[in-house]
Amino acid sequence: MADFIKNPVVDLLDRNPEPVFSGKDLSFSKDEKAQIMKWVSSYPSKEGAVMHGLWLAQEKFGFLPPEVIQLVADEIGMPYADTYGVATFYTQYFKEKKGDYVLDVCTCFSCQLCGGYDILHYLEDKLGIHKGETTADGMFTIQEAECLGACGSAPMLQVTNGPYVNHLTPEKIDALVDALRDGKMPEFESVTLPQDEDELGGNRRTDVSLTPTYGVCPVSETLS
């Protein structure tokens, strides 16, 4: 056997890790099964439902270890290998356990120029971990994200594939972390269009309470 096969240069994923879930914990409820079947019937082939299925599984189990991927594969009737291939292709599917809250800080180019790295470093210092790591209490994971499609309200971050928090400042980070420690997810922010401020006197949506405007972005201190 070639040397690099015995001693790979990169750490390979453990192919047969100890299962985290088993027995009764490792199953979908009747409703969840019905939901998956509904997705299956919306597509010309059952495989179309796999991304929905993986999302559902991740919401239920928190992440996607092999046994959960197998569960999704069985439910849809797809080979495990194909399901695993999909689960590992996309960045939002967590293949390992993350913190209760995953903070995806955007540092892509608009955010970079408006202090994305300042926010990332502030958060790293505050929580005492580096990007890619999880705090010892299992509460927070920090990740560096690519453009999240909110460049006008840079710098920004996303909490666990959910709400966006725009126009970050150290103070806003402090408040966010405190709120999350109390189990409060941030509310949806409906970012107002500048033209709506002029023509509608503010936000056009009356069904949301948080209506920040786009505003001048901060000056970045660091760019990497």
Binding site: G152, Q195, G215
Partner: peptide
């Protein structure tokens, strides 16, 4: 037009 970066009023403009 989605304008971002070093301007006073970034945002989406039609």
């Amino acid at each position: 037009y989605g304008i971002s970066g070093h301007v006073n009023r970034p945002g989406v403009y039609e």
